[in-house]
Design a protein around this nucleic acid. Structure first.
Lengths: 224, 224
DNA sequence: AGCCACCGGGTACGGTGTTCGCGAACGGCC
DNA sequence: GGCCGTTCGCGAACACCGTACCCGGTGGCT
């Protein structure tokens, strides 16, 4: 005892993008990581992340579940691939000179991607793994901030918080069910009378999209 | 076809706290929701969230898995109970008059709780359900902001973003493994030469705790 | 042409959440 | 005090999951 207290199988200390597809010798593979990733993304877009099981992804490709393990070491690897795959959807224009506007644009693009792939927030918020496409986005953010006087650590912190905020907001608007449940309970609590401020809350639907200004304020707060 | 396309079992539209424990008639229950929740929290603290299965929680209480369903409709219900349970750890002093300081204090307390229960970030970021203790915290936040001129929606938005940021930061510092994997890949990408800004990143460990000032900046950005 | 490394698929294992039917235990009522 | 209705605790069962393994077939290289 004492060597592997975990119940989950140990993953390689190296991200999947550093583990090359099997070497060239022998019979060549008839599928690719990209193909599998696309199938998984398609499935998640259609049926939700919970339905992305090895068996279903394999069925989507007309093969058996075990076969996927020729391309991927673990289901988590596949999830990492999915998360990075959709990062290719960013359209990264060269920095305009206005870092705030550029970063807000990145944030709004991120929200668009999260909306197109409602399973993404859960992935991004749960694991934080960077692949090739993610690296491109980070590079772009750093380029935008190249002339900014803040320390590198502060820049990365701001970027991390931006993604956290956007993903969290996207998750909230995707999981309307949770919101509804919570609203129902809060109404009950308010009716109880012990939470005056909660009860005084106006349910008014805010006009307009709060995210752009929120992002602007957060970013200018962090990177003054 | 067409009525229930979901594979997951449908949950009640009402949060568990509105579904009272079974009524008084008949044989009385020998356990309580609170007892089960505490067992689950204990287990998660010790072995991680992945080990919180119905069977293990039941074993922790010396009973069978099926028995838990007398108290809870779904495993997700149990997770909701866990998330709210630890919200009791907040120490909510009366508002001091300085809303910024008070909110930063709430954020730092939140981080403390997340650190004490490393499984919490995943829960908070993945679902957003408010129970009795969560309602108390929200009430406190609204009390702190009672005299603030911002609109209710903006206050709630700021509160939501504060929790998102704190949970995300806590998750990042708990899941050192992910960070390590990403760092390894980023080093590889930097060595490739196509990402100059990424390569120029100083790995310097920042001095001090960045969260207090970060929270202060974010909050004063949002609630100017 | 032959080799041999690899691929694809099937099967199997241990685990999961959840359902169901059963007998036993309790509180209230006659 | 005894019955009755209701609920409880339990264990077996179901469908599904991720993953390990083995085996026969297949293709590229020499």
């Amino acid at each position: 005892m004492g060597t592997e207290p975990e119940g989950t199988p140990p993953r390689a200390p190296v991200p999947i993008w550093l583990r090359p597809a099997r070497s060239g010798a022998g019979r060549p593979a008839s599928r690719s990581r990209a193909e599998i990733t696309e199938a998984a993304v398609r499935l998640a877009d259609r049926d939700g992340l919970a339905e992305v099981s090895m068996r279903r992804v394999a069925a989507e490709l007309g093969t058996g579940a075990g076969s996927l393990y020729r391309y991927v070491e673990t289901r988590d690897d596949l999830l990492d691939l999915m998360a990075d795959h959709v990062c290719a959807e960013y359209e990264l224009a060269p920095p305009s000179g206005d870092w705030l506007a550029d970063l807000v644009d990145v944030g709004l693009q991120a929200r668009g991607i999260h909306r197109r792939h409602p399973w993404l927030p859960e992935l991004v918020l749960t694991r934080a793994v960077v692949g090739p496409n993610g690296a491109d986005v980070t590079e772009h953010v750093l380029a935008v901030l190249a002339d900014h006087p803040a320390a590198d650590g502060d820049k990365m912190l701001a970027w991390a918080m931006l993604t956290a905020v956007v993903a969290s907001a996207a998750r909230a608007e995707a999981a309307r069910v949770d919101t509804e449940r919570s609203a129902r309970y809060l109404a009950h609590v308010a009716a109880q009378g012990r939470h005056p401020h909660l009860a005084a809350l106006r349910a008014g639907a805010a006009e307009g999209d709060p995210l752009p200004t929120a992002l602007r304020r957060i970013l200018s707060g962090l990177l003054g």
